[in-house]
Design a protein around this nucleic acid. Structure first.
Length: 545
RNA sequence: GCGCCCGUAGCUCAGUCAGGAUAGAGCAGCGGUUUCCUAAACCGCAGGCCGGAGGUUCGAGUCCUCCCGGGCGCACCA
């Protein structure tokens, strides 16, 4: 980022000499190393504007930049302008990174505005599965990225504790309870078959005895309450193990009690967005290009999930969030269209709600590969996976692919503790640096002393300079990753580690006289970025392993 | 049938939003080196009609159209 700023300043000055204003979006990219550190193709658009060939313009720019203190080489090749920075410029960049220390990477794009990330929001009908794990990791990391960018972030879980699915769950649990009492009770059709209800049924049988011989109204109420309570405890345990914390839990029941659903429906009606047919209330979605009109209010007068969801988002807006991000699975695509449309018709600002949609997870190399279904009881619990592989590995693997791609979770690779495993590859880099600093501290001398006032000009190794250039990208990577692309942060950290490990193997740090403090300063910068990056991912940065 | 997403090296994937210079990485494969401040290495080689066909452009993995293949959805479930 510092490098881009320097290049932009220099190029803009050179452009002025040619009598051209610097475009606001001056194209700058990091080309293949043999072309230099930064490259601009600004001569191509200018060629049209000035009616001259790109190469001619690029050459003139290069001439204007000759002798600039920041650049060791300025070349015009085929219309591209390639810049190579001097080591001195890079040393200044490192100096500034070290000055910023723990704040490096933090930016104020959010300006303290309120943002909400809603994720997981799994119905309390069973434990979290591997699929929820992807969502939990994604939501948590996106939240962390946005707080890094200066937003005030609320992590929220929407708890759907009403409705037919909960009734089915209650009845399924009741069946397990009767079974525990020695009866032949069947799980209801479409009910929850999973083993996880068995121990709970047994426990209830012990506590309640024969109090609920029939699944009547009293039983329904009691078993709903028991089931939701127990399921939430399971979910909370797994979230805790995964290191995910929510600031706010919103229950569907609360929205009803506050009259929000009625109110939102009225507003939609008033704006002519609804109509009645067959005793139900429908949203006029097809008028706006969607493929079907969904029901908002059933003919029995109860609101559908969609209706409640719309009301919920209106509530989010009233609560003062400037932006709301919902992390959801690809199976909710249609619902998302409908909610967005409804919010538009209600006059909420465009772009208030954004969905981070992710595809599903398949687990490769472990028992239980088949398609997961909570209802059928075929699934792998997130908690089990965390216990087997550790929180760090599971979190990292879950965000390592872009959300819209199907994720194949490679269990064999995840199990490895060698550096083949990308998580360890990154963590070991941090650990190795920590160990060097430990050693430096032991050997007394001035090696371990502070890095301010260190002569960085002794950093001349290509690997050292490459590391600095890479460290410079960190703030920009955070911005890119925040656009629902946390995998870019993983890729970046792996890149840093891939520069560091060979360097470490080849170049000795301690006991190298004047070079030692300079190298320690560089390692401090590398460690800083690794630590901050891992922290955003919610992955530990161990000092020893 | 309609809608959304995906199709890049043997495998898992970056790169597609903002079109640019010989398409990148990891794993697996092959060949070397090393055990040092260190947690379990380092270096190199090989591997690709970027699903297919058209089009736009000086230039397409990237944009447009069509087709093929895979996933998901198309409920008065959530």
């Amino acid at each position: 980022m510092q490098l881009e700023a320097r290049a932009r300043a220099a190029i803009s000055q050179a452009l002025r000499r040619l009598g051209v204003d610097c475009p606001a979006d001056l194209p700058l990219e990091r080309p293949r190393p043999e072309f230099g550190d930064l490259s601009t193709r600004v001569a191509f658009p200018l060629s049209r504007q000035l009616g001259r060939p790109p190469q001619e313009i690029a050459s003139e720019l290069a001439a204007a930049l000759q002798g600039h203190l920041d650049f060791a080489a300025v070349k015009a090749v085929g219309g591209f302008l390639n810049l190579q920075f001097t080591p001195a410029a890079l040393h200044e960049v490192l100096q500034e990174i070290l000055r910023q220390g723990g704040d490096y990477g933090r930016q104020d794009l959010g300006r303290g505005r309120h943002l909400q990330v809603e994720f997981v929001s799994s119905n309390p009908t069973g434990p979290l599965t591997v699929g929820h794990g992807r969502q939990a990791a994604l939501g948590d990391v996106i939240a962390a990225l946005f707080s890094e960018l200066g937003w005030r972030v609320t992590r929220e879980y929407y708890l759907n504790d009403e409705g037919k699915q909960i009734d089915l769950l209650a009845q399924s649990l009741w069946a397990r309870y009767r079974q525990a009492l020695g009866e032949e009770a069947a799980i209801p059709e479409g009910g929850y078959q999973g083993d996880y209800l068995i121990p709970i049924g047994e426990e209830l049988a012990q506590g309640w005895g024969d109090r609920y011989p029939q699944f009547d109204e009293a039983a329904r109420v009691a078993f709903r309450k028991a089931a939701v309570g127990r399921m939430m405890r399971l979910i909370e345990e797994d979230l805790e193990a995964f290191g995910v914390r929510f600031d706010v839990w919103t229950r569907e029941g609360d929205l009803h009690r506050r009259g929000l659903v009625r109110e939102t429906l009225e507003e939609l009606r008033r704006r002519g967005a609804t109509y009645e047919k067959e005793g139900a209330v429908w949203l006029r979605s097809t008028d706006y290009g969607l493929s079907r009109d969904p029901v908002l209010i059933r003919s029995d007068g109860t609101p559908t999930y969609l209706m409640v969801d719309i009301a919920y988002h209106v509530d989010k807006f009233r609560r003062g969030f400037v932006k709301v991000i919902d992390v959801q699975g690809a199976d909710h695509a249609e619902e998302q269209q409908q909610v967005k449309l409804a919010l538009r018709l209600l006059g909420l600002p465009e772009g208030f709600l954004e969905y981070c949609v992710h595809q599903f997870v398949t687990l490769k190399g472990r028992e239980g590969l088949e398609r997961m279904s909570t209802r059928a009881g075929h699934f792998i619990r997130l908690g089990d996976l965390i216990r087997e592989l550790g929180r760090d590995v599971v979190r990292y693997f879950m965000v390592r692919r872009k959300p819209e791609s199907h994720l194949v979770f490679d269990y064999e690779l995840a199990k490895k503790t060698s550096m083949d495993n990308p998580v360890y590859y990154v963590q070991y880099a941090h650990t190795r640096i920590a160990s060097i600093f430990r050693e430096a501290g032991k050997s007394a001398t001035r090696d371990a002393l502070g890095v301010t006032g260190v002569d960085l000009s002794l950093l001349t190794d290509p690997n050292e300079l490459a590391l600095i250039k890479e460290l410079d990208r960190f703030p920009e990577v955070i911005v890119q990753a925040s656009r629902f692309a946390p995998h870019l942060l993983c890729e970046y950290l792996e890149g840093i580690a891939a520069l560091f490990h060979p360097y470490y193997a080849r170049v000795r740090i301690l006991g190298q006289g004047e070079a030692t403090p300079a190298r320690l300063a560089l390692l401090l910068g590398v460690q800083l970025v690794l630590k901050r990056g891992l922290a955003i991912l919610g992955v530990s940065a161990p000092k020893e392993m």
